[in-house]
Design a protein around this nucleic acid. Sequence first.
DNA 1: GTTCTGATGTAATAATATAACAATTACCTA
DNA 2: TAGGTAATTGTTATATTATTACATCAGAAC
Lengths: 166, 166
Amino acid sequence: MTSQTELNQYPSEHNHNQCVNVALSTAQSLCNQRGVLLTTIRYQVLSLIWESHKAVKAYELLDRLRPLQAAAKPATIYRALDFLIEQGLIHRVESLNAFVGCRCSDQQHEQLLFICKLCEQVDERPATDVMTALLDESKQAGFLVHSKAIEIHGICANCSTKVGTT
Amino acid sequence: MTSQTELNQYPSEHNHNQCVNVALSTAQSLCNQRGVLLTTIRYQVLSLIWESHKAVKAYELLDRLRPLQAAAKPATIYRALDFLIEQGLIHRVESLNAFVGCRCSDQQHEQLLFICKLCEQVDERPATDVMTALLDESKQAGFLVHSKAIEIHGICANCSTKVGTT
DNA sequence: GTTCTGATGTAATAATATAACAATTACCTA
DNA sequence: TAGGTAATTGTTATATTATTACATCAGAAC
């Protein structure tokens, strides 16, 4: 049953512990480099977000944080989220009002987010061609880009294989 | 003062009455073609959205609808918005939780939204190159696209000229 | 006219997010 | 190491955004 659940959530070759470890240690060293504090609460929230590759809602995080931080309130979560977003450690998924870990914190942070309607996992891709085309378009429009949100909803490769073979 | 306001909102060559007229009559004929009802409430909400090129919040629409529909409640607005979105007559701006008229209802509906932080106007552009690159990327990822939200925040050409010359 | 469907009325409440101010902690430096 | 300062967290309240459920109404189909 556990294995079935994991099968539904991740491709079989996926070692999620490693994802989490990499994410958390990268986060820690980035914060060190930048002289900002990855406090206990912030670290715990980041860990909770990294429990899966799904986008998580703020109040769901709150529920999951409370066992660790009895005093946790909405502000607790939103402050941690604000910090993590500022540091580029997570993405806010605008079209879901939810949050997902960023796998590219140390590189170009703004990416395409592919959001699967079936497994709900969010995959990020740098998509250089798209970004180039986008900057071209912006330049043509005379538009000065500050930030972008590019969110694609549909069915991921993993899920469409399963659907196809069922 | 009125003219100053308008100057801040639209490029001078812009005839907004025409925008509105085109949008509303296009909406009406599309609904006729499709055999769906552009009821009074829906028409009023669409008109209110088209009062400017800014994205409007649902509860702001509610306030503005009430003089016309004394019984208007949140559900009234959200139902009208759902309908207008389904019919491709407006865009939901995910990153603002707000709504803006669509100038391309009869064509390819999914566009890039350029959102100006200064004048708050939302400009939509088809950006074929971006869309092509995006579909390529999706194909490479094996991702089946259902819908996309591409929202660019920054400073529009009109505002950056003003800022530049000040 | 009756029935059926879609639209609207109405009330309650859920879900998401922020503001304001107090208390505490971390850090610097004298 | 004491004291000052800035950042973080605690706490309460409330604002904002959105949905659900059920009643009623209006118009089309029969």
